[in-house]
């Protein structure tokens, strides 16, 4: 089934087409939801809400970009909506100035696969995680993030820096643990 046929089927409320659309994109979008949600159950709820919105608003997709991009944007928006009660201002490790610059060689993290990285992201405080996801993985700039989250651009930058710092600390801790384990052998 081509994408056009798929869209037409969904617009006609054909259950088979809707199921196919869901099957094609649900896996990737679930990863998006898991990155933003606090736990798996919440991610499922977000995915469900997002696809309801997708099916309800599919007629608004004008085909200007890719369907996947459009779907991803809705999933991200739904995720943000579900976590909008979180305060991005209150979380933090102090001012931006207090964060030491940390440079990490790629060798330290190159071995980390998606599961490990997801686990690391999950450990981040919610505000950091959201900004990190939006900026690093979903490709939004700070101005867009500030608008989406209704925060200052500076706050976005600050949260991103703190997120990076924490992630690198986590990675270093993991590395030490691995080294210790290696020595144990």
């Amino acid at each position: 089934m081509t994408e056009t046929e798929l869209l037409q089927g969904c617009l006609r409320e054909k259950r088979a087409a809707q199921h196919e659309l869901f099957r094609r994109y649900a896996g990737k979008m679930m990863t998006v939801c898991l990155r933003y949600a606090r736990h798996h159950a919440e991610a499922e709820d977000i995915l469900q809400d997002a696809f309801i919105r997708i099916f309800n608003n599919l007629n608004q997709f004008q085909g200007k970009g890719s369907l996947e991009g459009w779907i991803r944007r809705i999933v991200i928006n739904t995720s943000l909506k579900s976590i909008q009660k979180m305060s991005f201002q209150k979380e933090g490790l102090g001012g931006l100035e207090s964060i030491p610059e940390m440079s990490m060689l790629p060798d330290v993290y190159a071995h980390l696969g998606e599961q490990e990285l997801m686990r690391l992201i999950e450990q981040l405080p919610h505000g950091y995680r959201t900004v990190f996801n939006l900026f690093v993985i979903d490709g939004f700039n700070h101005a867009e993030i500030a608008q989406m989250l209704q925060i200052e651009e500076g706050t976005s930058r600050s949260q991103l820096a703190k997120a990076r710092y924490m992630l690198q600390k986590f990675i270093l801790q993991q590395s030490k643990t691995r080294i210790v384990k290696l020595f144990d052998y």
Binding site: K28, R35, L112, L117, I137
Partner: peptide, 12 residues
């Protein structure tokens, strides 16, 4: 590295 690993990752 994060982007490459996670952008198109699929979950169950």
């Amino acid at each position: 590295h994060f982007k490459d690993q996670l952008q198109d990752a699929e979950s169950f």
